[in-house]
Simulated scan of single mutants.
Amino acid sequence: MIHKLKNKRINLALIISAFALILLPGCSGRNVRTDLDTTNSGIIHISVDESFEPVIDSQIQVFEALYPKAKIIAEYKPEADCFKDLIKDSTRMIIVTRGLTDQEEKFYKDSLTFYPAYDKLANDAVAVIVNNDDPDSLFSMDKIRGILNGSTGDKQVAVFDGLKETSTIRFAIDSILKGKPFDPKKVFAEKNSLGVINYVADHKNVLGFVGVSWIGNKEDTSQLSFLKKVRIAAIECNCPEKTYVKPYQANIERRRYPMVRGLYYILKENYNGLGGGFANFMTYEKGQLIFMRSYLWPAKMNFTIRSATLN
């Protein structure tokens, strides 16, 4: 009788063990996701400020070449639309000209249940371009301000990369006009940065405002073709000496050029995924060198600027 009871206990234990083995994968599946991307594989969507399309295209091409299992699908649009996309499930990251305010951090924390991560990647500049036949390509900030608010009697006008909500327009209103409005008779817009370049190439007495990554890289064949159509204007220097400077890297780094802005990523990811992998790539050496070659000034890598005398 005792022997049979032992056998029954053993059989019951085996049944319980087998049942537990069946349940374990389902239980563990709640904590270990197998459908997520990793830092170097998977597919994600990001939204990027259109002013940075050339340099971010370069970053994505190199990243995907290094990690063939990774696919980053970028949509280029006005900055305000990028921030709207940050709340969408389909958008993992945005690349824009600023980080989050305290109020925005709280909003996204309440909406997402975690704080999005953000950091500066590089320093960019707003470049001013003019038609090749325009006699004047030297401007003070007072002159630019006067054209934008209509206080000068000049016939010059300005063209921007969108009708509203672009980072370049926001920069002009916040940093150049100090919150005052444009003169609608003096300021108008094209659809995007390429539209600005083409318009300035076809019209005299127009100042075009674009991100420097669109026209700063002389090693890019498409940008070389742009520079045959337009000239980059020199702006009065933020320095003791009376001189005019262009948005070259040394002038961006030393803030000698007066229209400098940041380039940031904002990442909506609370695990080690492809968004974090791409952010790390842009933050470290390879990504920082791409910013350098695109004639922005990297924010995370130290480069030395040496003075030199040219004969």
Rank of each mutant, 00 (worst) to 15 (best):
L224K: 15
P54A: 04
D183H: 08
P54C: 06
Y284W: 10
Y265S: 07
M282C: 09
L138H: 09
F160M: 10
D85S: 05
I266H: 03
I305W: 10
M292H: 04
F63N: 05
A127S: 12
T168C: 05
K155N: 03
D134E: 01
D102M: 11
L177E: 08
G208E: 02
N198S: 10
Y265N: 06
M1T: 07
W214L: 11
V230C: 03
N272A: 14
N40P: 00
F160W: 02
R145M: 04
K143Q: 05
N11S: 11
A20V: 14
Y265E: 05
L5R: 07
E285N: 06
N132S: 10
C239G: 14
P247G: 06
D154H: 07
Q59N: 08
P247T: 05
S41D: 01
D119V: 06
D110A: 10
V245R: 14
P181W: 07
E285S: 05
R231K: 13
N123K: 14
D37C: 07
V128W: 11
V130Q: 01
E190N: 13
L21M: 15
K84V: 04
D102G: 02
V157A: 02
I147S: 00
V245C: 12
T39Q: 12
E105H: 00
L86S: 01
F139H: 03
T39Y: 07
H3W: 10
L194P: 02
A127F: 08
N149F: 01
D134H: 02
V128Q: 12
L296G: 03
D134F: 09
I87P: 00
D136K: 15
S167C: 09
G162V: 00
K218I: 08
K71P: 00
S140H: 10
S51H: 02
Q223P: 11
R170P: 00
L12V: 11
Q61S: 04
K77W: 09
F171T: 02
L12S: 06
G99R: 10
L66F: 06
E236T: 13
M292D: 03
I197V: 15
N270E: 14
V260Q: 01
W297R: 00
F188S: 15
F209N: 02
D220G: 09
S58R: 15
D136M: 13
L36V: 14
K178F: 05
K268W: 01
L224H: 14
D174I: 07
T304R: 07
N270Q: 08
A117L: 13
